[in-house]
Design a protein around this nucleic acid. Structure first.
Lengths: 207, 207
DNA sequence: CATTGTTTTAATCAAATGATTAATCATATA
DNA sequence: TATATGATTAATCATTTGATTAAAACAATG
């Protein structure tokens, strides 16, 4: 009898490479990241990178999926949850964005750059966001006269602009306002409450 | 009699290089743009690039100044114009952003990336924006009870998030909403009117 | 024209870079 | 222990890339 012991065959090298690649690819352009940088950051021999992943590009695709795929999957779940109201969803979405981006502030710029470089870098399901339950709920609110009418694209751009943009503009904001990371983060946490309030004000029907 | 024709002393090569460099550097990362690409795009010999500009980096700096320097200079003028009211400035700023970015939709992502890569890529005067006449006017509005109180950084991030973010997210927005350039541009033009209305709604004091 | 200075070109260089190879090390299994 | 299998290393390869050079083409000047 042999118990077959192969659950984790020193998977650590592989993992270290992915972690290093993610770190570097998220903050720098693809061409700016050298395979030697990744190897050094991971503390492994350059050849191991190709041994495990075949090429720089394959490794990048893994990072891309981790960064973009997971993020969009979670957003999709929130947008299509039928148990939460329209306005509650706004609160939950803002909260989700700020939580996720506080941990990973370089993510938004990464996503925007990949989307610009080639639309096919985005997961195919992305277009489904355009027919989410959230937007159906917004149409219902409009019909019922409980929310100002605007194109659904404007609604989405406003929500993302108020929640995500500050993170992609972090470096600029810090310089313009002469603040440090701590102050910047404090402001971002304030926005958890503020952005939903602002969104409501924008959607409120004037009497 | 000869009319002496020397107004443009075949400056064309130099100009063609700058134009090509600007085109490529604005849309792609520095390391992703090869000097050979620039030469090809400009239709000149590779060596001419170094003949006129010394190095790829020097050429990049010229593009950077053109892209960022001019933009910030104009914004500064608007922000510090003492002849326009606070709310009027919001309208003028939104109008300025949308006009400029409609012509050059890749600019915002370029600026955000340069700011992230190194804060010193931003013009030094940038920090002056933090003490602009516009923000002084906002403080006056708050004191007079004519505008909701919020941190000035929030105000700036909201204005930029609503005006500029859509352009940096253009590729993503087009995919999510399944729209083309024409429709996207139409939406952006609508925002000239809408963003000031939304900003006012956010700043309005609830009774 | 001849001369001089500027612009343009083709060829080439040296360094950087993604990838491969062949050898070595480690570990588990028979 | 011997052997097979997978992990790791140093050395090397072929291409790409920013930059240089030396010569040629061009234009203005005396």
């Amino acid at each position: 009898m042999k118990p077959i012991k192969k659950p984790e065959p020193t998977e650590s090298a592989r993992q270290k490479i992915i972690a290093a690649a993610r770190l570097l690819f998220t903050k720098n352009a693809y061409t700016a990241v050298k395979t030697r940088d990744i190897a050094k950051e991971a503390g492994i021999n350059l050849a191991l990178l190709n041994y495990y992943f075949g090429s720089k590009e394959k490794l990048f695709e893994i990072v891309m999926t981790e960064n973009i795929g997971h993020f969009f999957k979670d957003v999709t779940l929130l947008l299509n949850d039928e148990r939460t109201t329209f306005f509650r969803k706004i609160e939950l979405l803002v909260d989700f964005y700020i939580t996720r981006l506080t941990d990973n502030p370089d993510l938004p710029l990464f996503v925007l750059i990949q989307a610009r470089n080639s639309a096919k870098n985005l997961p195919n399901k992305v277009h489904r966001l355009g027919s989410s339950f959230f937007l159906k709920q917004y149409r219902d609110e409009m019909k019922a006269g409980r929310a100002v009418k605007m194109d659904e694209t404007h609604l989405m751009l406003n929500l993302l602009g108020l929640s995500i943009f500050p993170f992609s503009a972090r470096a600029m904001a810090k310089k313009i306002r002469s603040i440090d990371d701590k102050e910047f983060n404090k402001l971002m946490q304030e926005r958890r409450k503020l952005v939903p309030i602002w969104m409501k004000a924008m959607l409120e029907i004037k009497k």
